[in-house]
């Protein structure tokens, strides 16, 4: 099973006193502000969950795995996630 914005909005509708349209709007805003914060600060730390960090990757040589053709992978930024220690424990202690 997969969790998407639809399931999250359903949860907001059940737990907060809002209608379904507002619930969907809030979920959209949540991820929109996460993105905006990440773009603006380069980092978002959510205690008990983890940290999103933007990293700069250098240009490097690679090749097309299908054609074997060498090519240059341009320098670019990527977004990474580092789990917090608390999240790691919650995912592993119950086993």
């Amino acid at each position: 099973m997969s969790v998407t914005k639809v399931e999250l909005a359903e949860l907001v509708y059940e737990h907060m006193k809002v209608d379904k349209r507002r619930a969907a709007e809030l979920v959209d805003m949540f991820f929109e502000e996460l993105k905006a914060g990440l773009v603006k600060d380069g980092e978002i730390q959510i205690s008990g969950f983890g940290k999103f960090v933007i990293k700069q990757k250098k240009e490097r040589k690679g090749r097309n795995p299908q054609t074997n053709q060498p090519l240059t992978i341009s320098k670019r930024k990527v977004a990474t996630f580092h789990h917090s220690q608390v999240l790691k424990e919650r995912l592993n202690n119950k086993k």
């Binding site: 969790v3 998407t4 737990h15 999240l87």
Partner: peptide, 19 residues
């Protein structure tokens, strides 16, 4: 609520996909 829901999904090993 959002963060707990995502952690809950992870504990159940549900994939989370936010377009």
């Amino acid at each position: 609520l959002m963060i707990d829901a995502m952690i809950g999904a992870m504990i159940q090993e549900d994939r989370i996909e936010i377009r």
